[in-house]
Design a protein around this nucleic acid. Structure first.
Lengths: 230, 230
DNA sequence: CCGATTTCTTACAAATTTCTTACGAAGGGA
DNA sequence: TCCCTTCGTAAGAAATTTGTAAGAAATCGG
């Protein structure tokens, strides 16, 4: 999994440190700034994926900083504000931010919102360009609808089966070892001796192959792993 | 490319200015009004292609303004509302509007929706026009009047149910995870373990399906989420 | 052809995910 | 205020998926 870089700008060190702890716990890198100018500075030097800005800061405050950032970039911004401030006003002023939270905030909610913004940014954001539909000799996989067709006939795969097939078909031709498949699909370390992947491969074959004993699509490469024939 | 004229009506100058920046960046002209009457005035004098209206405004508010505009014109209207306001109310009242957004909003999302509406209105552009009425095998959803019909028979959905169904039917075929549905409809972060979406799905099925146990429209994709069959 | 290794196959129990129902709280309208 | 509708939660039921284990079959090097 990619490691995200998050920039936190707040004049109170306790808050910066607290947020740092929460986010590091979610496997993110945290950069800290005590005011807007410092934040802009870090933003230029580092490859930041998301910014948390406090509204009330000495010098450049959160709102001014947001405007500055928005002049050149579209990165997700999460605004923090004290509850005492007029929320209506805050609402108005935080335009330009992608989300906002009142202090004191619930750590769970903070991390949830951060993750949600990162998802949105990286999934729908400037990246993408991956094709929705992949086709290999009559085998069609649609990533948007998570459906699989064999010769126009829909095939119902389970979530795990689908993920294995998507991995293989997305890199068709390439051979994946059992260990590699397990770690990519389960996102957990693989321990030798597990038979799980083989069982799932069997089940996939049962569904997509005419004759599972002589697979046309999902082939084994002896002593190495599995692949989808190009 | 044609240059579009967009009218923004909001009593908060910061929001007007922010929106102006985003839209100018997309090569649009922006006219600004601080309340409904001023908006109607500008609308008469200028050749406006799209209107952004805040719900909460002194004098003529966004809803009253929409009704006034709709008496004579069919121009696209995008409604803005604070998240704190009751969504139930919002849904009911935004009848007449073509789209709506909660504040604080994501600038990317605002410009995307504005462009989408303009495309639809002017019938230009390579993208599909978003229809007011969406039909899937006897299930008809009208976005303008927020009504739903199953085989010509009207079905009364609640606000939340309607929004879930609209989300799914608008992207029919695509699978939405429970988390995705929750965040898109409630505009709040989702915490694991909540059963809310499932219950609403059940209620929707009870209303639109002949046999809720074997849904014809709103199907589950095990381990992934829900979708409306294409 | 043999033994060692790797993959396949099957069945079953455990785990996960979704469904269903009921109930109390909140809010709007009479 | 009372009634009605909608909403979210909880808890148990039902459905589906998943991993494990154990033996069979296939492949490879010699």
């Amino acid at each position: 999994m990619q490691k995200y870089n998050v920039l936190v700008a707040d004049d109170e060190p306790e808050i910066r440190d607290a947020i740092e702890i929460y986010l590091k716990n979610e496997n993110m890198n945290v950069f800290k700034a005590s005011h807007g100018l410092e934040a802009l500075d870090i933003l230029e030097k580092e490859d930041i994926h998301l910014i948390i800005l406090d509204v009330m800061m000495p010098g450049l405050d959160g709102i001014q900083t947001t405007f500055k950032i928005r002049e050149s970039r579209n990165i997700p911004i999460l605004m923090l504000s004290a509850k005492s401030e007029d929320t209506d006003k805050i609402l108005g002023l935080t335009v330009g931010a992608d989300d906002y939270l009142c202090k004191p905030f619930n750590p769970l909610e903070l991390t949830a919102r951060v993750k949600s913004q990162l998802r949105r940014y990286t999934h729908l954001g400037p990246y993408k360009a991956t094709e929705d539909e992949i086709e290999v000799r009559g085998l069609v996989l649609n990533k948007r609808s998570k459906t699989v067709f064999v010769d126009q006939e829909e095939v119902r795969l389970t979530a795990t089966e689908y993920r294995i097939l998507e991995l293989l078909i997305e890199h068709r031709g390439r051979v994946f070892s059992i260990e590699e498949i397990y770690e990519k699909v389960w996102k957990e370390p693989y321990f030798n001796g597990e038979n799980t992947v083989a069982v799932h491969v069997r089940r996939i074959r049962e569904k997509i192959e005419i004759n599972p004993r002589e697979p046309k699509y999902l082939k084994v490469v002896w002593g190495i792993g599995y692949k989808i024939e190009k």
